[in-house]
Nucleic acid binder design. Sequence first.
DNA 1: CTGTTAGCGCGTTCAC
DNA 2: GTGAACGCGCTAACAG
Lengths: 345, 345
Amino acid sequence: MAVRKPPERPTIAQIAKQAGVSAGAVSYALNGRPGVSDTTRQRILDVAHEVGWVPSAAARALRGGGTATVGLVITREPDVLGIEPFFMSFVAGIEKVISDRGYALLLQVTPDPERELQTYREWWSARRVDGIFVTDLAIDDQRLPIIDEIGLPVVVVGDPDYADGLPAVGSDDAAAANAAMERFAELGHRRVAHIAGPERFVHTRVRSEAMARAGARLGVEVVAEVNTDYSLTAGAAACEHLLDSGNAPTAMVFDNDLTAVGALRAAMGRGMDIPGELSVLAWDDSPLCELTVPALSALSRDVSAYGADAARMLLEVVNGASEVESVRSSVARLVERGTLGPVPR
Amino acid sequence: MAVRKPPERPTIAQIAKQAGVSAGAVSYALNGRPGVSDTTRQRILDVAHEVGWVPSAAARALRGGGTATVGLVITREPDVLGIEPFFMSFVAGIEKVISDRGYALLLQVTPDPERELQTYREWWSARRVDGIFVTDLAIDDQRLPIIDEIGLPVVVVGDPDYADGLPAVGSDDAAAANAAMERFAELGHRRVAHIAGPERFVHTRVRSEAMARAGARLGVEVVAEVNTDYSLTAGAAACEHLLDSGNAPTAMVFDNDLTAVGALRAAMGRGMDIPGELSVLAWDDSPLCELTVPALSALSRDVSAYGADAARMLLEVVNGASEVESVRSSVARLVERGTLGPVPR
DNA sequence: CTGTTAGCGCGTTCAC
DNA sequence: GTGAACGCGCTAACAG
C-alpha cells in the first residue's frame, strides 16, 4: 500500500503563524466576531481559505459546542431493509436540510430495541451526537421515557399525541383516511376492509381510528380490521380470507405497498377483475406501486419532505429552542392509478 | 418543553476522584495497560461501570487516536434512492461489522460528485472520519486520485483492476457471467443480448467483457450490447427494439432488476410467452424479482455480506495495516425462478 | 479598538 | 502509582 502521508491537516496555529498573528486573533476572524481589524481579518481569512482550513469537529465538541452531528438508529433485520423504501428516502430528506447547515448524520442499524437504546446511551455519553430521531413509534413506547431520562435531545417521528410530550413530527393520517373514504363513498362503496400493520405501532392505531370515524361520517362501513406483519404473503392471505368470508368487502385499504401487492396478486390469481370486482388502495406509496399491472392506487406521502421537516425540527431542538411545537406535517394525497373503481353490482 | 437537565456525563476525572486515584491511573486501568495494581484496577473498573462511563469520542479524536467513525457518501438524486435496494442492504452489512468494533457510520447523500469530493475534504479536515467507502466506481474515476492526494484512508467498492492501486473489494462478475452463459448454453440458447447500465461504470464494462469471453468459449453469441440508465422504461424500450430487430436474441441479460421488469412487461404486453419464447435474467437480484409474474430469475449477490467485507477491509486500512490485499469477495449465484427456459424452436 | 496570553475541556502518555 | 503536558479551538482577562 501507499506510504502514509503526513496528515498536515491545517490548524489554527498554522494559520496564525502564516498570517503573523496569534491564534486567538485567528479564531476571532474566522468566527466573525470583533477583536480584529478588517484588514487583518481579511488576511487571516485568505490564508485560511488557501490552506483549506476546516475546524476540527473534535476540538469543537470537546469545547462543549456540540458535535454538529445527529443520529438515526434503524431497528430492522438487515435482510428486510432492502425492501423498505421508507428509510432511504427519509434519510435523503434529512440530508438535504442538515448538510446545508454543516451537520452530519450518524447512522446505525440494529436488530432489536434493546441495542437501539444502548446505542443512544453510548452516543450521548461519548458525545457523538447532539440529538436523534426516533422512528417506528409504538403504543406506550418504552424508549421515550428512557431517552428523556438520558437527556438526549430528540424529535419523535410519529403522531404527536403519542410522543409523551416530546417534540414530534407526524403525518396527518386522519386527513388521508378522509380522502380515501370520501373517494370510496363517491365510487359507491359501502363495505371496506382495512388491512393494517402490527398493532403495536402508533400509526396503525391512528389509521384504524381515523378510518372508523370517516366511515361513520360518510356511511361507509369498515367491515374488517386485519393486522399483518406487512409481508407480501400476509397481504395475500388477508385478501383471500376476506374474499372467502360471507361478508366480503368491495374495497380494501392496505397499510403498506407490499401487502397490497400480495392481495392484488391473490385476487387476480382467482381470476378477479381489478378494479372491476374489487378496489385496492395502498396506504404508503412506493415505486413498487407503479410496477404492478394494473398499477396500484395509493395514498402517497412525500417521505423525503417528511425527513426534511423532522430534521428542521431536530436542529431547532438541538440549538436550544425552548418551545418547539409538534406538527403533523406530512399529508398524503390520493394518487389514482389503476386499482380504484366503482362498486360492482 | 422539558427543562434542560444537567448533562452530568461522567468523565475520567470524576472516576478518579471516586476511586481515590489520579486521572492517569484511571486511563491505564480502563485501557488494560500496565501501571496500576490489579486491585486498584478492579476498583476503578467497578466505579467506571457503575457510573456508566464511556470515553469521549471528541477527546480521543483530539488526542489523535482516531474518531472510530467511517464515512459513506451516496451520490444520487434523493428521489431515486427509494428504488435502490442496494445501499440500504450495503449499509446494513457495514453496520454488522463496525458496530461490534465500536465504530459508527457517517452518512451523506449528495446530488453530484462535486459535492461528494467536497464532503470528503471536509470530513477529513474536520477529523470527522477515519476512512471512507467509495462506491459507483467509474472508468478513469476522477475521485480516486483526489482522495489519494487528500490522504484519506479508503476502500474502493468495485473491481480492483480499476481502483488505481487503492485497496478494493469487488464482486466476481466474470464468474457470474460464466454461470449465466453456461446455463444459457445448457438450455440451447445461441443468441443472447446484454442490456447493460451506463458505460461509465466499471462494472458495466467488466460485465460486458466477461460475457463476451464466456460466450466465445461456450459458442453463445452476444448479439447486442445496449447501454441504459437503469430505468424501467429504458429496459422496456431496449427489449422492444431487440425483438423488432431482424436478429432477435432468444435470451436477455439485464444489468439491474428494474430494466428486467420493464422488459418482462414489454414482452408480455406483446403477448409473448415467458420463458417459452424468451428467457430473461436480471443481474442484480432484489425483492422486486420475486414480485413479478413469472418471478424473475436473477444473478443474486449477498449485498449485505458485500458491505461487511468492505467494512472489514476498511477497518484494516484505518488501523494501519500496511499491506491490504484487494479481493473480489462477492460472488453472485444464479437463482432460477420463472423466466429461464429452453431455447424456442 | 486591536491584539495577545492563559486556561479550559477530556483522555492519553511520558517522565518521575 | 502521580503530575504535567499535549492536541485544537474558544473565550475571558489583559496590554498596547
